[in-house]
Design a protein around this nucleic acid. Structure first.
Lengths: 145, 145
DNA sequence: GCTTACAATGTGTATATACACATAAAAAGG
DNA sequence: CCTTTTTATGTGTATATACACATTGTAAGC
């Protein structure tokens, strides 16, 4: 088979990326009413669960590059949803959610639930569960690396 | 369950996005030796398969936003991999791959194959096939929207 | 033919992503 | 203590993404 048809049919990167873009847009639409992106929402999630994590800790928990965490924190700090404290170890900075952040997060929870529910309606509960299971397995495997 | 633990455990957006980031990095590493990103590689794929598509046609085939296509074409044109022709319909522009583009694409094919193969080794053939099937199903469902 | 509708594209802006490189502070080794 | 190494972070640069808004050209209705 010629290369371009092989890639067009079988590329796991582009398939995954296409699905990722679509789901991102779905959640973006839902969370728009509270003015948060889905990435910001997932970061606020980790910030609350971890409590006073540093940037490397957040990067590890979210499986994102630490420089991406650094950059993505800026709008959250700017909008008063997150604050950053000094640490005894003066190299690191400790990230926490603010009162306003918690309030907005709670407000966004309904939007997030609706996006989850919409996706279930679109895909069907069975396929949705299959997908969740598979994604967890993939994340577990890549987490070992 | 409190919101943040619900989101941390069950969010299909963040699971998909995490896997997408990981796979992107895997293919990025492989294609780095030819100086292409995986997104560029998949765009060059569609440009060859479609032959003289316009921007909307590429956007539709790749399921990407047309403004993203527009922006992503620029480095490809700059690097001489793609050229853009006028059309009889003077609103549209027809996108084609250049000789250099084809050569680089062929060179990148081995890297792409290796990334595909590496992912198979990491995940296992069975799970890889399961994932391919599921992604195709999801893309088919969202394509109807 | 003229006006109106629609279609194709471009641009401003904002977030998301990650590599390469640099800096500063703590820890380790002697 | 002083040097070396490691750790935590910041920044420059480049690509990727998509919405809102604007422009231009074609098609449709009359």
């Amino acid at each position: 088979m010629e290369a371009q048809y092989d890639v067009a049919k079988n590329c796991l990167f582009s398939k995954t990326r296409t699905v990722s873009r679509y789901i991102t847009n779905l959640y973006t639409d839902g969370l728009k009413e509270v003015g948060l992106t889905p990435v910001q929402y997932s970061m606020l999630t980790a910030i609350q669960v971890l409590e006073e994590a540093n940037i490397n800790g957040l990067a590890s928990a979210l499986k994102m590059d630490r420089t991406t965490i650094n950059r993505n924190l800026k709008p959250l700090v700017r909008d008063g949803l997150v604050f950053i404290n000094e640490s005894i170890d003066r190299r690191e900075r400790l990230i926490s959610i603010t009162k306003e952040g918690i309030e907005l997060y709670q407000k966004g929870y309904a939007s997030w639930q609706k996006a989850q529910s919409d996706f279930k309606d679109i895909l069907g509960e069975e396929k949705r569960d299959e997908m969740t299971k598979l994604l967890d397995e993939v994340i577990a495997v890549i987490g070992k690396k």
